[in-house]
Write a protein that binds this DNA or RNA. Structure first.
Length: 506
RNA sequence: GGCCCGUUCGUCUAGGGGUUAGGACGUUAGAUUUUCAUUCUAGAAACAGGGGUUCGAUUCCCCUACGGGCUACCA
């Protein structure tokens, strides 16, 4: 490897939400760049105008920011290789395509989409390549005067690469090792479309060259077209500057088979997007990991461990630890099925390891979104500290913390009513009196006097603990009940016992 | 169909010519918690198959099977 500066790019198409696989590609790019003190570039590959989705580019940026892997150079924060949107680079590509035509490595093709469709339908294994190109309408098969006429008339045409016969194209992938292809199997890919836009094949080569990309990470689905890119690097005379390739293993669906795709979101019962994505075409909001309550630290941790490990047996890593430990050698070759259960475990771990202070803003948002009014920051911090070990997703904080801020909307009456007795009513009335005469609640003291009172009334502690919990919390969950009472304070505890009692005996 | 890539517990994976094949998630059982969760302990659970090479192969090679990807004027 040369000692040139490490520059990598994440090059998504703005066609919709950013899914798991895309974020992981971005993450690996980021980790590799930061590990090597290099640059992480975001390039928007919007050459397909028919698939362009407004808002998708901003959304991609938002996702990267949320994940904490913001690019060093991007359309909105350009470096010296601007512009960073391929649509804005349109004029650049034709020159290179024409150069390839001049050199005999590419040619004009005038066939219409309909003609080609017909061929594909009628001829088994039809490829626009060395076998059939002489019989098609292009600058290799047509007489020169006809070509000139076609061009003069601005007849719609594309430029195709002329794949050479009988060659073996091979390269060393950083993940897969030596990979080889026979050119006889390749077809003459379109480089420049009729609308003047480049296809991915031309654009990726030209831009990686012009942007001085040193290492190119992309999904394994690109492996079959790698030889076309290799040929292009060679024909354009840039071979010495070609980035080192790394084709990442795919993220697969957990059920059945196939790679995880955007369409799988609803069906699988877990998000496939990083953040909620509002699909303006269907008018639906498709859930993202952020929206369902993931911490960004957990999300990137999950992604990093899909297809990579540091061999230590440790799995929970912060972003800076990932940067420190990341190495391409430890990326696995095989695709990985995504496991949402394990993803949730990572999130629970990150919630447990995070301080209440750190979680505060995110928890507060969850509470506010659910209509809970939070007045006192210190109170909120105490609550978070008390319950964070029992939350898997940030959204769990509403269930686990809501009752600290508002009286239960409903009680789990099935848990108390069937076994309710007049003795219990009497008991809680005396608890009520007891509290009234107490200056303020101390958890241990309340527990002691509560138990003593139960004994005095001839009740088993166990029979009145659960009712007390239901009174304060509404259900059979939550931390130590006397801690809850202490946090709620004397007045609120009295208030809740009173209200619940009315509901229990009605 | 053709080409390319891959294959260790259900899942993510460690390991690597001689190991009781390790860990994590999930799961099962138990302990703790007068709730639930956490935590702790223990258990079940894997080298796709066949040929080589070798004293010895899960590990190296080949074949098969299976899985995946690509096969657009989409990326």
């Amino acid at each position: 490897m040369s000692d040139k500066r490490v520059r990598v790019r994440f090059a998504p198409s703005p066609t919709g939400g950013l899914h798991l696989g895309g974020v992981r590609t971005a993450l690996f790019n980021y980790l590799f760049a930061k590990k090597n003190n290099g640059d992480f570039v975001l390039r928007i590959e919007d050459t397909d105008q028919t698939r362009y989705v407004a808002g998708a580019e901003q959304y991609i940026m938002d996702c990267l920011n949320w994940c904490g892997i913001a690019p060093d150079e991007s359309p909105v924060n350009p470096g010296q290789y601007a512009p960073y949107r391929q649509s804005e680079r349109k004029s650049i590509y034709r020159e290179y395509a024409e150069r390839l035509v001049m050199q005999g490595h590419a040619y004009y093709a005038f066939d219409t989409a309909e003609e080609l469709d017909k061929n594909r339908k009628e001829i088994p294994n039809f490829q626009y390549g060395q076998v059939y190109r002489d019989g098609l309408r292009n600058s290799l098969s047509l007489p020169q005067h006809e070509i000139d006429q076609l061009l003069d008339n601005h007849t719609p045409h594309v430029i195709r690469i002329k794949i050479p016969a009988d060659q073996t194209v091979s390269f060393t992938d950083m993940i897969r090792g030596r990979v080889s292809f026979e050119t006889n199997q390749l077809d003459d890919k379109v480089l420049l479309k009729a609308d003047g836009m480049p296809t991915y094949h031309l654009a990726v080569v030209v831009d990686d060259y012009l942007m001085k990309i040193s290492h190119a990470f992309r999904g394994e689905e690109w492996l079959p077209s790698a030889p076309v890119h290799l040929l292009l690097w060679d024909y354009l005379g840039w071979k010495a500057d070609m980035p080192q390739w790394a084709h990442l293993p795919l993220i697969l669906k957990p059920d059945g088979h196939g790679k995880l795709s955007k369409r799988d979101g609803a069906r699988l019962g877990f998000p496939v997007y990083a953040m909620d994505w509002e699909n303006t075409q269907t008018g639906t909001l498709e859930p993202g990991f952020e929206g369902v309550g993931f911490l960004p630290e957990a999300f990137i941790n999950v992604l990093a461990t899909l297809g990579w490990n540091d061999s230590s047996g440790h799995e929970v890593f912060s972003l800076s630890e990932l940067v420190e430990k990341f190495s391409i050698e430890r990326i696995s070759k095989a695709g990985a099925k995504f496991d949402f259960e394990k993803a949730k475990w990572f999130n629970a771990e990150w919630i447990k390891r995070s301080s209440a202070e750190k979680l505060k803003n995110q928890v507060e948002k969850v509470l506010i979104d659910n209509g809970v009014i939070v007045k006192d920051d210190n109170y909120l911090l105490t609550v978070i500290e008390l319950i964070k070990d029992r939350c898997t997703l940030l959204t769990d904080f509403y269930l686990q913390a809501g009752y600290f801020f508002q009286i239960p909307a409903a009680y789990d009456l099935n848990a108390v009513k069937p076994k309710w007795t007049d003795e219990k009513t009497a008991f809680f009335k005396s608890v009520f009196e007891l509290l009234k005469s107490t200056p303020s609640i101390v958890a241990a003291d309340l527990e002691a006097s509560f138990k003593a009172l139960a004994e005095e009334k001839g009740l088993k502690t166990g029979d009145v603990m659960l009712p007390l919990r239901i009174m304060l919390v509404g259900g059979k969950f939550g931390p130590h009940v006397f801690d809850i009472a202490a946090l709620l304070g004397k007045d609120e505890t009295i208030n809740r016992i009173e209200q619940a009692l009315a509901a229990f005996v009605s």
